[in-house]
């Protein structure tokens, strides 16, 4: 009798957890989903946890995110502590052995990049929300994204080996397109200088040859004080930057005020795939970012 009950229960549980033909991928940020789509095309099913216009530093772990993570074959995330405020809870609550730390399905994109601004000396929270392992906003860096795409290809091929050649072919095509676009992006922004709200554009500046000469935040993640804003007005008038850079969710009030006081224009840079209707994938994101900075 006991045996029969367990058998019936096991069969029931198997039936309500049907296997899917596609690789089920949960990405934290929309840009990760976009890169996975380039490689996986129709062999992957992708869901992004964070909405394009949400501040990715301050996300609350919603139960629906736990449900999505519980079914994921691979969880892909930005890393460098960007998701530290919510992702560990989602992973722990998911009961999904595939996505636990150290498993193949736990894919930290930052493991494939060369981080900048890694801190060498002592740091603590008196310095603001410093990311000790490097600046986490590397998704506007073609060089690093190429490496991330290669890592994604490798992991998809490992987990779904039947389609390994398909993923590899898509990566080759992705790489070719990226190389082609890079010629267009070139160093068209060389010589320009900007003041940014947050340390968001450093990788891009390094690759495209422009300069970030100051920050509106007084420290990383810390909103500016009125004294800092006053100092900035003097600095902006002296430096005469080509624009004040921000994103849809950052410092609208502060940048508008500084622009009014100094006459320097505010540039709301598209920051992630889907943040505007015309930003449909990572390539158009890069096109629009560069267009906005010109």
């Amino acid at each position: 009798m006991t045996k029969r009950i367990f058998f019936t229960l096991s069969m029931f549980l198997m039936l309500i957890n049907p296997a899917s033909a596609e690789v089920n991928i949960v990405a934290t940020l929309p840009w990760i989903g976009s890169i996975v789509k380039e490689i996986g095309v129709d062999k992957v099913n992708i869901t992004a946890l964070v909405k394009p216009n949400q501040d990715p530093h301050f996300i609350e772990a919603k139960p629906s995110m736990i449900l999505l993570a519980s079914k994921a074959d691979i969880l892909m995330y930005n890393g460098l502590d960007l998701e530290v405020g919510y992702l560990p809870l989602i992973i722990n609550s998911s009961r999904n052995s595939r996505i636990q730390l150290g498993r193949k399905g736990n894919f930290d994109c930052s493991r494939y990049i060369a981080p900048i601004e890694r801190h060498q000396g002592d740091i603590d929270r008196s310095m603001g929300d410093v990311h000790p392992f490097g600046n986490p906003h590397y998704h506007l860096s073609p060089k690093n994204i190429l490496n991330v795409a290669e890592g994604i290809t490798q992991t998809l091929s490992d987990i779904d080996s039947d389609n390994g050649e398909f993923y590899k072919a898509n990566f080759v095509s992705f790489k070719e397109r990226l190389m082609e676009r890079q010629k267009k992006w070139g160093d068209s922004l060389g010589g320009k200088k900007f003041i940014a709200f947050h340390r968001y554009f450093e990788y891009l500046a390094e690759e495209l040859g422009f300069q970030i000469v100051g920050y509106i935040e007084s420290m990383p993640g810390i909103p500016p004080s009125s004294a800092h804003i006053e100092r900035l007005i003097g600095e902006i008038n002296r430096i005469k930057p080509d624009g004040l850079l921000t994103t849809a969710y950052y410092g609208k009030r502060e940048t508008a005020f500084l622009s009014q006081k100094t006459g320097v224009k505010v540039i709301v840079v598209p920051h992630d795939v889907g943040c505007r209707e015309d930003v449909k994938d990572w390539f158009t994101l890069m096109d629009k970012v560069i267009e906005s900075l010109k």
Binding site: G102, F107, R111, A114, G151
Partner: peptide, 29 residues
């Protein structure tokens, strides 16, 4: 006896071995 065997089986299924470490550029902690 059969019940213990079943529980053991469930535990074995639920505790899979570590996956291979993935090649990475940045270091961990």
């Amino acid at each position: 006896m059969k019940l213990y065997f079943f529980i053991l089986l469930v535990l074995l299924i639920s505790f899979p071995a570590y996956g291979e470490d993935i090649k990475s550029v940045s270091s961990g902690r």
